[in-house]
Design a protein around this nucleic acid. Structure first.
Length: 589
RNA sequence: GCUGGCAUAGCUCAAUGGUAGAGCAAUCCCUUCGUAAGGGAGAGGUUGGGGGUUCAACUCCUCUUGCCAGCUCCA
């Protein structure tokens, strides 16, 4: 969660109190949960006897407006735990919160009054009066578990946002519209990039030809960069026998995320062989490692694979290409000695920063994912190894003077991680790179190498993805660029547009010449010129070449950019050089 | 998985109990055009699926599948 600035927090937090007050008036039996300010707004949770839907928001919003117009003062009062218990007698959730606070040893709590009828248990701070809220928008109704626990009661949550001026609200609404326009699911349909078919299965992506070009370009680049950095490619199967997953601990720790087993009867025997589709690639890479004895002289080993895995994610979390059930990780496992480990992590970090920058992600947020306190039994391996690893990763980040936040509870069951999240122009964060330590598998699989001392040692395994997964990464790119991919990734780079039939032949020749130099181009010759320009524009093709009588005579092409800019006449050879340059520099246009 | 909502032509949407309609796309015909939509014609649907209520269901009820928002979870 991002840090909120104080004025936004006061504003939205006060608005959430106004919402609660309005709800209590409209639904006197409503029990109040909590109502904090969040990034870009606020919410409040209620326990209601009745169902409410988005249609009710208007009514609630009107009630809130009345409270705002009364310009009620917001005043805090410090009271003792016992007084608080009396005051919130009829509010079971508040009583629970008071008990929690009391258990923490807190003796008094603050209560905020809005006018003299409404009060709420609250730390504050707040606006001085409701009249400071100048505009308001209720967005949605959703269910949310009390205290975020799946086993707790589900409350009704209402989301909204408050503003200090009408203008601020307009800006906010504009942003919402802008985000809707960039939704990769919409763009994916509009630009014929991908689809999801219920008959194939929810969360399984069908890559259409255009998006497959984007992926192919990324994969080519990815391979080249890995080769350059001393990685070797491996290929491994999509399924493995249950024994493998027993050894890896997946059947113990990860089974609910795995597709169910495939049972294969054995000939003349009663037992069956059970196969599982892989949710991770690690066990396979480990088996390659274990295919023969290893020496310290071979280490570090860096094995990478575009490994397709399947995870049976809960139906409610699926989201276009960003959260799917089948995805291809740009996976790698680095197997090294203890003394190589710090350097290897640093190399991976260098690689990751470089890669992110090449795709135009200039701003990154770094997280150190460590164990949480809640589900301590979820983590496998010795506590001492965990402490050591978390400390080492933290030191590496500090050494590099990288600013980072700790993501407490963000560690995988097998080890801590460094996660990089790309920040887009709208401030949204997209996880791609994750560098995870794994001290579960080397032990479980009894991975060893012979050291300089002639003795057996256990290697360290680093598990990492840089892009994350092809699906999520490319989905992110679609949102980031609003479907207008940088030139090197554009499914079509050039549209060739003859003005009339007289130039069809020349245009066709130009298109073939572009193809010969490896530039992806398409000849559009139906309909009017304007309609073809529109077509190329809507397809977000970076370059349009207009070929008319003039151009044929002077042996040039007229260049129009997808930005709408008319660059005038240019020689074809110069244009080819220009495109090649843009491709090389990975420019947007 | 949970809470709430949605599902009508390829797409975007209309029709609120009386046997489905528009624009765009696609198809065919005419048009050959100088920087974001040239004109015309015909076609396209057992209203996501099953069951029920009713003389009559896109419309009401119920089950189911998928999708959307959020919760929880995650590459």
């Amino acid at each position: 969660m991002k840090n909120l600035n104080l004025s936004d927090e006061k504003l939205n937090h006060s608005a959430s109190h106004v919402l609660a007050q309005a709800m209590q008036k409209l639904f006197p039996k409503a029990k109040l949960g909590i109502g904090p300010a969040i990034e870009n707004g606020f919410y409040y949770d209620f326990d209601l006897d009745n169902k409410i839907s988005e249609q009710d928001l208007e009514k609630i919003s009107d009630e809130m407006t009345k409270i705002i117009e009364q310009d009620l003062p917001i005043i805090s009062k410090e009271i003792s735990i016992n007084e608080a218990k009396e005051l919130f007698e009829s509010q079971p959730f508040k009583l629970e919160l008071i008990d929690d606070l009391s258990l923490e040893g807190i003796k008094s709590v603050s209560v905020y009054y809005t006018g003299n009828k409404f009060f709420d248990l609250c730390k504050g701070p707040h606006l001085k009066s409701t009249g400071e809220i100048k505009a308001l928008k209720l967005n949605s109704v959703a269910g949310a578990y009390w205290k975020g626990k799946e086993t707790n009661k589900m409350l009704t949550r209402i989301y909204g946002a408050a503003f200090l001026s009408q203008k601020d609200m307009e800006k906010y609404l504009w942003r919402q519209e802008e985000l809707k326009k960039r939704d990769h699911r919409k763009i994916g349909k509009d630009l014929d990039l991908f689809s999801i078919d219920p008959d194939v299965g929810p969360g399984l992506i069908l890559w259409h030809p255009k998006l497959s070009i984007v992926r192919e370009e990324i994969e080519l680049y990815w391979r080249k960069e890995h080769r350059k950095r001393g990685y070797e490619y491996v290929y491994t199967p999509h399924v493995g026998i249950d024994n493998l997953w027993k050894t890896s601990g997946h059947l113990e720790n990860y089974k609910e995320s795995m597709y169910p087993e495939m049972k294969m009867p054995k000939k003349d025997k009663e037992e069956e062989t059970k196969y599982y589709v892989k949710p991770m690639n690690c066990p396979f890479h480990i088996k390659i490692y274990k295919s023969r004895p290893r020496s310290y002289r071979e280490l570090p080993l860096r094995w990478c694979e575009l490994g397709t895995v399947y995870r049976y994610e809960e139906s409610g979390v699926l989201h276009g290409m960003l959260r799917v059930r089948g995805f291809t990780q740009d996976d790698a496992h680095i197997i090294c000695t203890e003394s190589q480990f710090v350097e290897e992590i640093n190399k991976v970090l260098d690689f990751a920063l470089n890669l992110n920058s090449d795709f135009g992600f200039k701003e990154l947020k770094v997280y150190l994912s460590v164990r949480g306190t809640k589900k301590a039994d979820k983590y496998v391996g010795k506590v001492s190894s965990w402490e050591m690893a978390e400390k080492t990763l933290e030191e590496i980040l500090k050494e590099r003077k990288i600013k980072f936040e700790k993501d407490i509870g963000g560690a995988k069951f097998y080890g801590p991680a460094i996660d990089l999240k790309a920040v887009d122009p709208f401030g949204r964060e997209w996880q791609g790179t994750t560098i995870q330590l794994d001290f579960n598998n080397p032990e479980r699989f009894s991975m060893t190498y012979t050291g300089e001392d002639g003795k057996e040692h256990t290697p360290i395994m680093i598990h990492r993805t840089l892009l994350g997964a092809m699906e999520r990464f490319i989905g992110t790119l679609i949102e980031m660029y609003e479907g207008a991919f940088p030139v090197w990734l554009s499914p079509q780079q050039v549209a060739v547009l003859p003005i009339s039939e007289d130039q069809f032949k020349s245009a066709d020749k130009i298109q073939k010449e572009l193809s010969d130099t490896g530039i992806r181009s398409v000849l559009l010759s139906n309909q009017t010129l304007n309609s073809r320009i529109r077509q190329a524009q809507l397809e977000k093709i970076p370059y349009m070449l207009i070929i008319g009588k003039r151009e044929v005579e002077s042996k040039t092409v007229s260049l129009r950019l997808r930005t709408g800019k008319d660059k005038g006449e240019i020689k074809l050879t110069d244009f080819i050089t220009l495109v090649k340059n843009k491709v090389k520099k990975k420019s947007i246009i």
